[in-house]
Design a binder for these strands. Sequence first.
DNA 1: ATCACCTGTAACCATTGTAGTTACAATTGT
DNA 2: ACAATTGTAACTACAATGGTTACAGGTGAT
Lengths: 142, 142
Amino acid sequence: MSISSRFAVAIHILALLDINKEGRNTSEFIAGSVNTNPVVIRRVIGLLGKAGLVHTSPGVGGASLARLPREINLLEVYRAVQNDPPGELFAAHDKPNPKCLVGRNIQETLDTVFKRAESAMENELAKVTLDQIVFDLVRGDQ
Amino acid sequence: MSISSRFAVAIHILALLDINKEGRNTSEFIAGSVNTNPVVIRRVIGLLGKAGLVHTSPGVGGASLARLPREINLLEVYRAVQNDPPGELFAAHDKPNPKCLVGRNIQETLDTVFKRAESAMENELAKVTLDQIVFDLVRGDQ
DNA sequence: ATCACCTGTAACCATTGTAGTTACAATTGT
DNA sequence: ACAATTGTAACTACAATGGTTACAGGTGAT
């Protein structure tokens, strides 16, 4: 299965918070841009908040970036909204037969390969910062 | 969510087919090594067969590699058992609001980044061949 | 020809993650 | 007090997954 759209939504939210930094950015406003339910937005913002990427104003309403866009990279965002812990992008089959040469060693062999592939992906995400996303977004609009 | 354990199972099967190339390798035998149900094995072998990686002997029983282990890389295996089409590792949120600068352009921006990250992962898989897996497996057993 | 064995596949089930929705307590400015 | 908003719980519908049973069809041995 593919990686949850929460990741895409999170990036959307963060980009919007930067571009519309004058505005109030309530969950309802953001939901209008993402085209989903405000609760979905609040859930994602909750995760981003726990990760220290955004601040919210309960009662008042609205959210804002907790850091400069260039100090937020996509790997941080990915980790913030990802349920699975790092190192588990690829699922292993459990309890292969220890009486079999393959069953006895496959886990460790796969673990090495899988971690390498996962890291390669994450490194690409780490290279991209929010300000690059915003730049690309604005540029693409012309 | 993580990538289906079908991938791990598929690699397990292929490694076993190579190491136990003298044996008959029925789905039941393989299931014993993987520790799952024979039908699950047959399903995965079916996918590997369609991808041209293995041959089976209906009636007779057993499966075997259709190519030399060094001519099978993990990206091929990955594609063989993966349900999602290439380029969709990361899910996009659908129908963002075209009236919003962000909503109007986020899809394309994300697509570029997501594809880059996905390719980085796949490139790592493509580097690893089945004979390397088998070598590592056997080496780890000592 | 019969028989035992195996594959391929359909059908069904339980479990899990996801995303949308309603509802509401708690918070805050007016 | 009041209106607006966040944070969260609860519920729903849906899809993918992995396990299971069942069975039609192929194949070699006797």
